[in-house]
Each structure stands twice: as structure tokens, then as C-alpha cells.
Design a binder for these strands. Structure first.
Lengths: 244, 244
DNA sequence: CGGACTTTGTGCATTCATTCACAATCGACG
DNA sequence: CGTCGATTGTGAATGAATGCACAAAGTCCG
């Protein structure tokens, strides 16, 4: 383990990430899994584990171990053959790859149930993110305390973005208000947006929008559930047909 | 997702499941996009649009039109050349493919902010799903009304699953309680689980678990945001180096 | 009825992702 | 110091997904 000897002076200042960290870039599929690995690593660290083999880490992340190793190999060569990976060091390296060695200032728009759930999400948001403000258009919510911040009125959006140098906006408002909020975020210069509203946002090029949809996964579950019961049915009829 | 190997004979031979309903099955990537199309179609229908071309539908779903057409072609041939797709009919066909022509009985475990957000999600959950119960372990929440159901104590889980024939369980409890709730769901025979807790659930084969993670997408955003700023920096240093 | 125009559905080439399988490399131990 | 068992990192094989480009198939209009 023992510190980042191979990347001297790269962590302190954000601007100092000069040495192109990841030569050919990291595949999207890998990036999408890194947070899962990171979480599994934190869990291991909390259990006092200091070293882990790809096999075990893969199991706790729910992936195949070859995939895990290939994913990690895109970040560099941080394992020790015959031993495994140093948990603490790997936490650092994965965090660095994801850009979580700095804390990104975030604004959450919408203090409904979802906004509140996020503001209280604690654990993971606190590593790598700082919720600078939670906004809502409902005056009766303004002034209420959520997590560690106080709900402000949505009219303050532009001022707060400028004041805190907000880099990431989270949209947790009803679908009807989402596009307008998105437009305002973009107009103020925010280029990373996380959308919880159930619609596709329209943004100019250069803006990165990702979405989290509470119902899509449920619908995918329904698909598989249906497939299973259909399979049972087909199997039964086939058996019946075979007996006839 | 872990749903292979459970119904031997149906998956093994292509000829078995093969014909009805969807020859050769629908690719996972397509299934994941169907809910997005469905939503776009509902939005069009509400605006009074009766017919839509792949180009326009693709735009409102945020995908490439060739991909949209190929996706839809897996469900059947429901378009009219020279015209487009009938919105209402396509809504039906996509719903059918996803298994949303029936309403799946769902139980939500956890009546915190997230559970509440789900119970009030209304719109989409009402098409294809029926929330039969919301459970919590906190006695002070029991009896409260959420959406259209009353919060019950989590000790009633098994009885409610049996009574309502629950097919899908949603886990919206803190990470520490999630695995235990999952085990209880599985023990009662629930084979479709949607997990909002930030950990990887352990389930026996034949159980389909999907997860929605509020923080993973945020971490992916951070990655891209970092990449952008690093790119700017590298670009600047390269220019400076070229001048020297 | 025929030709111009529109849009679907899909074969094909290409890119991206997964998985296998094993040589290279490490720590441990006698 | 050499051998042994363990584990990584990665070439190569396979499989999945994407996007292009166009023939097939429809509408519409004169």
C-alpha cells in the first residue's frame, strides 16, 4: 500500500492532475462499475480487511473476477501478484479515477420526498460531494432544515450557483418543472446535471445529463417476471402436448 | 440480474420458448429502453398526437432513430412504411412486451423519504403496478397514510405477501437492514426485487434483483466533469509547451 | 393508375464489452 | 536461493450493441 509514490504531487491541487492519468481513457462500462467497487472497498475497510483478492472483491461487488481485474487495469497496475490489492490504496486510486478526491459542490433543486432523501443520503454523498444548497419553489418549505443545509427559495438559484461555484445540479422536481430548471442551470453555466424527473431533458452540447429513474428498473423487473411466468406456461403446455 | 438456469428445458433449447411472444427473445439493451419509449409515447398521446415517425419518437426519447426502429422490430412489425407508428397501438404493444398489461402487486419496504417518494410517484407506477402495502419498522410511522395505502408494521410482511400475492418487493430501507428484508422476501417466495439500498444483495439463483442507486450516477457525473477539466488543463499546458 | 415521396425494417460492417485461459510475477518457506 | 502455490494483468476469442445505408413497402396526388 503506502501512498501514491508513483503519482507525486497529483492529489493536492485539482489543476495538478497533469500527467495524463489514464492513457487510452476508461471505457464507459468500467466507469459505471467503479462506484460499485468503491462501495465494496469501503465496506471491506470498515470490516478491518486490509488486503483483498480480485476474487473476493468481485464477489462482494457482484461481478465476475476477470472483469474486475480488467476494469482495475484501466486505472493502472495496483495489485500485487500472489497477494491481491491493498484496500486502502485501491480506495484512493478508484476515488481519484472517479474524480472524488475533490469535493464537488452540488445544488439539489426540489425539497420533496426525493430531494429530502438525497439530502439525507449522507454516507456516500459526503465522500466526493458537498450539498451546498437545497431549493424549492414552495414557500412553506423554505427555511426548513434538511440534513445540514437550509432550504432556500428557487429564485436564488443563479446567485447560489455563482456564489458556491456549483458544478453539479440535481433535479428532483416534478416532470412539469424539470426542463425549466434544467434551462436555468445550463444558463448559469452548470454542465453536469443529474435528473430524477421522469422525462428526457433537452440540453445544448457540452452539457452532461444523466438520469435516475425510479420506475424504469421496476418495469424491467416486470418484463423478466412475465418472461418467467410465460416460460412456465410454455413448458407446461409443451409437456401437455408431449403427453397427448 | 440473475435469472438464468431456473427453468431447465425452456432456456436450453431455442425451439422451446422460441416462437411466441418474441422470437429469440428481446435483447437486454432493448428492454432497458422500452420504458423510455413508453414514456415518450404517453407524452405524445397526451398532446393529442396519434401517429409518430421513428425520427420524432427517437428524438423525444433521446436516442438514434435506427436504434429505435431496431428495438421496436424485436417486438414485431407494428409500423406503417411511409407513415410511422400509431401512438395508441404502440403504447399497447410496448406495454404488452414489458408485461404491463397486467398490474403487478408490489410491496414497498421502508416508509422513509425514499419509500414515500415512491408511494407518491403516482403516474408511472399506476400503470402496470399496484402498491399493495408500505411497511416500516418504526411504530410511529405505522398507521400513517401514504398515497393510497396505510403504512403497516414490517412484521406483517409475510402475511401481506401471501394475502395479496405480491410478486415484486421494493427495498427502501437503510443499508444495514436491507439484506435481512431481502432474505425475508425471498423466503416468502418473492422472486423480483428492486433494491434502493446502497449495497449488493445476496440472493439464491432464480431471484431477479435490480438496483437503483442514487449516488452512482452522481459519481459518474463527477468522472466526466473531472475529465472535462483535465482536458482543458492538458490542452492549456500543451499549448504553452508548444510556444516554449 | 403511375410515379414521387416518405418511412419502415434489416443486412452488414464496425465498435464496444465480456469472458477465457495462461504467462508473468509475487510472497513464503524450507 | 530455489521451488511452490497464489494471484494478477492481459492477449485472444467470443458475443452484444450500434449505426449506416438502402431495398421494400406504404401513402398521396395528379
Amino acid at each position: 500500500m503506502s501512498s501514491a509514490a508513483e503519482f507525486p504531487g497529483s492529489e493536492a491541487e485539482p489543476g495538478n492532475l497533469a500527467d495524463r492519468p489514464y492513457p487510452g481513457g476508461i471505457p464507459d462500462a468500467t466507469v459505471a462499475r467503479l462506484p460499485v467497487y468503491l462501495r465494496a472497498l469501503y465496506a471491506l475497510a470498515e470490516r478491518g480487511v486490509t488486503t483483498v483478492a480480485s476474487d473476493e472483491l468481485a464477489r462482494s461487488a457482484g461481478v465476475n473476477s476477470a472483469k474486475l481485474r480488467k476494469d482495475l487495469s484501466h486505472l493502472g497496475s495496483y495489485g500485487i501478484r500472489g497477494v491481491g490489492y491493498d484496500v486502502e490504496y485501491l480506495v484512493y486510486q478508484v476515488s481519484r479515477a472517479l474524480g472524488l478526491t475533490q469535493r464537488w459542490p452540488v445544488v439539489i433543486i426540489g425539497a420533496g420526498n426525493l430531494g429530502r432523501a438525497l439530502a439525507n443520503y449522507g454516507g456516500f454523498l459526503n465522500r466526493g460531494f458537498r450539498i451546498e444548497a437545497v431549493l424549492d419553489s414552495d414557500p412553506s418549505l423554505v427555511g426548513r432544515k434538511l440534513g445540514s443545509v437550509i432550504v432556500r427559495h428557487v429564485s436564488e438559484l443563479e446567485a447560489l450557483v455563482a456564489e458556491h461555484g456549483i458544478a453539479i445540479g440535481v433535479i428532483a422536481v416534478p416532470a412539469g418543472a424539470a426542463q425549466a430548471m434544467c434551462d436555468r442551470l445550463v444558463a448559469t453555466g452548470v454542465t453536469s446535471i443529474l435528473n430524477f424527473a421522469p422525462l428526457v431533458l433537452n440540453v445544448p452540447g457540452g452539457v452532461d445529463v444523466r438520469k435516475v429513474d425510479l420506475s424504469i428498473e421496476l418495469q424491467i423487473l416486470a418484463f423478466h417476471a412475465q418472461r418467467r411466468s410465460t416460460a412456465r406456461f410454455v413448458q407446461a403446455t409443451d409437456r401437455a402436448a408431449a403427453e397427448a
